[in-house]
């Protein structure tokens, strides 16, 4: 069987964590299949990345092209398509990230490779790829079989697979010529836009009172703000709260927001979507209040209260002020 390819994800001069998470999985899949794995690095001035990657992967394929400096799905697809034709990998792995989500589905159609996205488990059975996915908001897992094919593409959920640290490997670095002839007009990268920070920095807080759409409406927010102040903490939230404009973006805990590690994370009315959990599971103590006993948040929390927050928070506010 031919190699397993890992697409290296990097942005603003840094390899992204998801890449190292994929390495561990790729290695075990390669061992299972009696094959090897290759890190595919596309970019501009990426020599230092190649050195780093060669200590973790037996082979690093590098294409240097100034047009590959920033991620552009059209140019990445062209480049990968030509590499796939040349090397015929059995599987191409990438993150289920802003990167992979923009690239994997179109490449899969072009190459006629079956695609499975957002995997939390992946294995080969009799040459066919099988995946585990988490569906229905994390309430159910699905085992998925892909049809027989000479190649597959899979995107992996961030924060699931343990990252592979520096090994003793001395991998080969292979430079490939770029198949690109300049940039493209149909899709052009212009610039990065950083989120403005105007209020408090939630990554610095020791206690976070974090609210989700389960609080029902913005009218309850003053109560949570007051609770946060009494606890000596700060208010944060999950994505739906930002989408509904109840709180500003800078308060959002999640993959597309901030990653936080407070001493105490009090999650109220947050169901526990993986995009949220990934960014707060490093907290020392997690306490969840949710009226749905099956909410995925209770699998990450240390302590839980299954009740309507309105029965709990007003009493808590009173008790906390007694505490002082």
């Amino acid at each position: 069987m031919s190699d397993i390819f890992i697409l290296v994800e990097h942005r603003q001069g840094k390899i992204r964590d998801i890449t190292y998470e994929i390495f561990g999985l790729a290695e075990s899949l390669a061992n299972q299949q009696g094959t090897s794995f290759t890190a595919v690095l596309l970019g501009h001035d990426v020599k230092s990345f190649a050195d780093d990657l060669s200590r973790r992967a037996p082979k690093v394929l590098v294409i240097e092209d100034e047009n590959l400096e920033h991620f552009n799905s059209v140019l990445y697809q062209k480049t990968l398509s030509s590499l796939i034709s040349k090397y015929q990998p059995s599987l191409l792995l990438m993150g289920h990230s802003a990167f992979g989500m923009d690239l994997a589905p179109s490449l899969s159609v072009e190459k006629d490779f079956p695609l499975v996205t957002d995997c939390i488990g992946l294995t080969f059975e009799e040459g066919k790829l099988k995946a585990t996915r988490s569906i229905y908001g994390g309430k159910v897992n699905a085992s998925v079989s892909l049809r027989e094919s000479k190649g597959y593409i899979a995107t992996l959920r961030p924060g699931i697979f343990p990252p592979k640290m520096h090994g003793e490997i001395k991998g080969r670095i292979v430079m490939e010529a770029s198949p690109l002839e300049g940039g493209v007009d149909v899709k052009k990268f212009i610039e990065y836009i950083e989120a403005p920070i105007t209020g408090e920095d939630i990554t610095q807080a020791e206690i976070l009172v974090s609210i989700g759409q389960g609080i029902g409406g913005p009218e309850h927010i003053p109560m949570f703000e007051e609770l946060a102040i009494r606890l000596g903490g700060t208010i944060s939230c999950s994505r739906p709260v930002v989408d509904r404009n109840w709180l500003p973006k800078e308060r959002q805990v999640g993959i597309s927001g901030k990653t936080v590690k407070p001493k105490i994370y009090l999650a109220i009315g947050i169901s526990g979507a993986f995009q949220h959990v990934t960014a707060m599971q490093g907290s020392d103590t997690i306490i969840a209040i949710n009226k749905d006993p099956r909410a995925p948040i209770f699998s990450v929390a240390d302590y839980g209260i299954v009740d309507d927050f309105q029965n709990v928070i007003p009493i808590l506010k009173e008790k906390i002020s007694d505490m002082k």
Partner: peptide, 19 residues
């Protein structure tokens, strides 16, 4: 391309201590 073989409840693993 893709077929669901089966669905199941996720392994419970660590659970919060419910007060």
């Amino acid at each position: 391309d893709a077929t669901i073989d089966q669905v199941s409840f996720p392994p419970t693993g660590k659970r919060a201590e419910i007060l």
